[in-house]
Structures are given as structure tokens and as C-alpha cells.
Design a protein around this nucleic acid. Sequence first.
DNA 1: ATAAAATGTCAAGTATGCTTTACATTTTTT
DNA 2: AAAAAATGTAAAGCATACTTGACATTTTAT
Lengths: 72, 72
Amino acid sequence: MKTRIAELRKKHKITQEELAMAVGVTRQTITSIEREKYTASLVLAYKIAKYFGTTIEDIFDFSEVEVEEIKK
Amino acid sequence: MKTRIAELRKKHKITQEELAMAVGVTRQTITSIEREKYTASLVLAYKIAKYFGTTIEDIFDFSEVEVEEIKK
DNA sequence: ATAAAATGTCAAGTATGCTTTACATTTTTT
DNA sequence: AAAAAATGTAAAGCATACTTGACATTTTAT
């Protein structure tokens, strides 16, 4: 899954290590998520979003996720 | 993790089975998430949120998640 | 140009998010 | 009250999200 993590890190001039420490994971986890090796868990996604002061949907790209909506 | 899934299901009068089918998981997965047996994955959380026409943060309760914020 | 820092990669191991199957229990409908 | 529908539970298995350790490669600083 594409994310805006690397972009936000560069904008704020922080390393993967610094972000990793702030959100409680290893630097390799941040690398893997940025490189789309795997998708962040819900809790980690939230922590990253809050760290950058925004929402999960603003950082993680769900455009390829197909969704149904409830009928009213 | 607490969620508002059961509440929204009741409000809209749909069963766990119906929600499960709509978001592409088994009925037992919905049960497990409602009963807090485990936390939904990011993609599933998004699908459920979109199904009910709202945001992840509105359905899943992150109040117990500790977060750091970037220093400006 | 060299050294240091940051990032990428790999592999093995652990934990968690799901699936499947089956039955129990509760709730709703008849 | 009985039957049907909905939900709860358990266990085993699979896939994925992470951790750890180590080294390679790239980027940045000197």
C-alpha cells in the first residue's frame, strides 16, 4: 500500500529511526511500510497519523481498495 | 479495541453476516472484532468505515493508544 | 575524496489477523 | 412454546505484520 510517510518525513526532516522510535516500532518496520513490503497495522497507522498531526486516510492510500456502501 | 460496529449494525438493522459479506470477511471475523478478540487490519477497518459512510477514527476507539506528536 | 549517517535488503523467528469447521447459546420469529 | 435465525465460542491452520541481527548500498556531511 502506498503511503505519504516518506514525503512527510522529508518535509519535517526526520529520519526513519526517529519516526520509528516515536511510534514504537523498529526502523526496519518503517522501511518496510515505506517500501510497501507490508501494510501497517491499524494501531500503528493511527500512531503515525497522529504523530504527523493528520488522519489515517490522509497518509495511507486506499484508492485501490474496493468498498461497498450500505443502502439507506 | 472497542468499536462502534455493533452499534452501527443495530442502527441500520443488519446482521453480522451481511456486514461480513459486504466487507469481504467471514461472519466470525466480524464477531471477533466486535467482541474485541482481535483488532481489524487497516484495510478491513477502512472497508467497514466506508461501508457505514464514515471514517476509521469514528468507528474504532483509539483513546487507549498513546501517541507522540512531532515537534514543530 | 573519505567518513559518517541513513536507508535498503535478507532471513529467521514471533505475534497477530483471518479462515474454516463445528457446535453452543442467545435472540428473534412463528 | 417451538423453531429459526443470529451470535458466541473454540481450535487448528494459514498469511501477514512485526522484531532482531547483520550486512549492503546510497546519501549526506566533512
